[in-house]
Amino acid sequence: MLEVAQLSKVYGPDPAARPAVADLTFDVAAREFVCILGSSGCGKTTMLRCLAGLEPVTSGHVRLRDEVVSGPPREMAFVFQDYSRSLYPWMTVERNVAFPLRYKGVPKQEARAATQEALEAVGLGGRGRSYPWQLSGGMQQRVAIARALAYRPQILLMDEPFASVDAQTRAGLEDLLLDVWQRYEITVLFVTHDIDEAVYLADRVLVLRAPAHVALTVEVDLPRPRNQLTTKGHPDFGRLRSELLAALSPAGTPQ
């Protein structure tokens, strides 16, 4: 599905400058849920922007379904961390979701149906006429997810989407995401700095170290469907958690 090979990114004209992404290589299979885990400042966001075609790469390449990514691809949708700055405050929730569809060439009737369906999938069926700023933070991020879903992507890139909501809301959003991932049969690449979140959501966790490269790959074979109580209480959950914690800490040993 997604293939990243020897990807490097250096900001600015100086080739000797410290790269943000260096020799990053990994694959994501179709319908896989991959979490990218890294501490802040390790180049996660830069990497994601390169994958999304928002930032030109310095060397290496990104392929989406065997096609080299050079600009934002049609099969991809992006959910940003800061929902308040990615939803358009002058449009209603409905229009926010429907807006990209118009330029994708979706007929009006179909766009309306897709919008309604996506909003219902995230539990906001009745809030289409509201404005984003009238909703809570968690609801706004659900609108952003609905917008991505209505776009019918094959792959969803998410940049720490739940980092700015409270813990309670966050658990709800995680379950919602797993649910739509199954229902819409999409591929998800999810960036986070939260170990528990990564283990809970993913099929596979990639640990990133600065400058962004894959330091460790951990397969998560916890049973699905996952559940906030039973999954997090599963003995393997603790094992994976410690393994990742060790990989993340600078010396390579658990703190």
Partner: peptide
């Protein structure tokens, strides 16, 4: 980020100007 979101959804430049930048 408002513009990045629009770009990621392949909104053409003209529409980005009239529908995002100007509002």
């Amino acid at each position: 980020q408002l513009l990045d979101a629009a770009r990621s959804f392949q909104i053409p430049a003209g529409a980005r100007l009239t529908r995002i930048v100007l509002p």
